[in-house]
Structure formats: C-alpha cells, structure tokens
Design a protein around this nucleic acid. Structure first.
Lengths: 142, 142
DNA sequence: TCAATTTAAGATAATTTTATCTTAAATTTT
DNA sequence: AAAATTTAAGATAAAATTATCTTAAATTGA
C-alpha cells in the first residue's frame, strides 16, 4: 500500500510535529528515536525538502523544520511527494485508460473507495497532533 | 496496492468467468486475449491451482477451469492467494504490533478504512459477472 | 506410436525498491 | 582558523518483485 520510504517519512514528520519547540531537529535524532535507518531516512527527507514541505539547515544545531503550518501538510502530500499519486488516480487493475465511459470490470466499485482513501489521507499533521495532544489516542506508537 | 501478479490473475479469472461455456480454457488463450505475458501469468495461475481455486488439465484441449462456483470465489481470495493478506491485516505505518490498546498515530482512522477495503474486495466473481451481463456496466475492459 | 499441445516446475535474468556508504558543502563552536 | 556536526548528492549494494526461458510431464489426436 505505502512504501517503506513513505511510512518512514510519515512517522518522522509526526515526530517532528510533536517536537516543534526547538528550531531545527536533526535527521539523526529522528532516526535514533524512531529506530529508522539514518541514510535511508535522510535521502527520503531530502525529497520533502525539495517539495517545499520541509526546510533544512546544515551544520551543528542544524536539522529540519516545517516550511508550512501543520494544518497545510496532509498525509496525502507526503505520500504524493515520495510515492507519487498513482494510488489515488490509477485504475485498480492497472489499465492506463479506465474511465466511467470505458471502465474495467471493477471500476464502478473501486472509484468510490479510491475517493474514500483520498479523504482518509487528507488528514493533516495538525489533525493527528490534535488527536494525540487532546488525549483522544493514548500509548501512541511513533 | 495490488501487485502486477494479482492484477493479471483477477483479469484472467474474470475472462475465464465470462467464458465458462468451454470445459477448459488454455492459459495461452487468456494471455493472448488479455495481452498478458504468458510465462508470468502461467506461473501465477499455478498458485491459484494449488490454492484450490482453479483446476488444471494438461495436453491439447487442456487448460484451466474453476474448482468452485463463482459466487464462492471473492476477489479477496485471489489477492490473498498471490499477495497474502497483509493489506487487510497490518498496520498502515508498518508496526508489527499495532492495536486499539497500543495504536500508531493513524490506527484509529485506518482500521475502519481497512475494513471498508476488505468489504470492497469481498465481491465475488459472480457479482462482477452479473454487473457485466445485466448490462449495468458497458464497454468493459478486460 | 508419434507429433503437437498444454500445464508444471524451477532456473535465470531484468527491473525496481530498499538500504548503505562516501564525499562534499555548509555552519557552529571552540 | 580548526574541529565537530549536520545536510546534500550521488555512487554502490542488497533484496524483492517482475519477467522470461528451459525442460519435463501429461494428454490428445492423427
């Protein structure tokens, strides 16, 4: 469903969102705290920097921080930046051209589900942070 | 979402379901008609034979046929046979242990969606064939 | 029986994804 | 200025997925 890269990045950004007090947080710290492979995470984080979701700063005291407010960063944006948007756009059976007029055998049942998925991932980091901070969800895994 | 193998198999089985008049249909015929790579399809079809979804018969006039009635073969069964059931069972962020008591940050929102997906794929080949034969869906791509 | 056809099984190869490493550049602290 | 820290970029490697091929076994029909 989601690639390893995306999963890592989502976790990293939730961690970052929950620790926004400091100016910059190093990728190293995130990798250690979340037990993620540093080099792999660093490479994927770079993509989010290029996409304009994160800002980065080198040197000691350097690290990454958000470039946008949390409520403007959706899980969907993270997924699109890393994996692309094919999951929310393409035919479930892989047909290049599959539409209402020219549907695959599952099209009419799949399209609403696809929209449903898109909605789910439209939750923002702010939404997630709220769930956690309000205590709606406890013993959260990061 | 779904592997190439699964997509090919679903398409192949829908084709098979729509052409059940003959006793056996060769994998070759399906591969040609659906423009699928023969060797790849043949290998994956073998798994469905082993899973008890299909029967096969060698030699000229040989091929494959269903081992169960169409209403007992769900898309879910095809997916499980080829890709496994992790999509419908595992945590969206990849945590091995993620439950209501010990959830990841997206758990509570993901679980209902996962159930929704499972329901979608619980449609049987018979359901799909009905949609097509009743003319509910036209210009279908196979 | 023999040739043709078709699945069975597994070896091999190509591609993509995931993971790791190396070097460089920027920045801070001493 | 020098040392330490951290991201940047891209090379390299490992693993998983996808694709192809080869040989064998079974079956049919001439």
């Amino acid at each position: 469903m989601l690639s390893e890269s995306v999963k890592d990045c989502i976790r990293a950004l939730i961690y970052l969102a929950l620790n926004q007090d400091k100016e910059y947080i190093s990728v190293k710290e995130i990798a250690v705290k979340l037990n993620l492979p540093f080099f792999f995470l660093a490479k994927n984080i770079q993509k989010l920097v290029k996409e304009g979701i994160l800002d980065s700063y080198r040197g000691p005291k350097g690290g990454i921080t958000f470039k946008k407010p949390l409520n403007e960063i959706r899980i969907l944006d993270i997924i699109k930046s890393i994996d692309g948007d094919s999951l929310f756009r393409k035919c479930i059976l892989g047909f290049e051209e599959c539409s209402d007029d020219n549907p695959c055998a599952i099209h009419q049942r799949w399209v609403p589900e696809r929209e449903h998925l898109k909605e789910l991932f439209s939750q923002s980091l702010q939404d997630i942070v709220n769930d956690i901070k309000v205590g709606k969800v406890k013993n959260i895994k990061l």
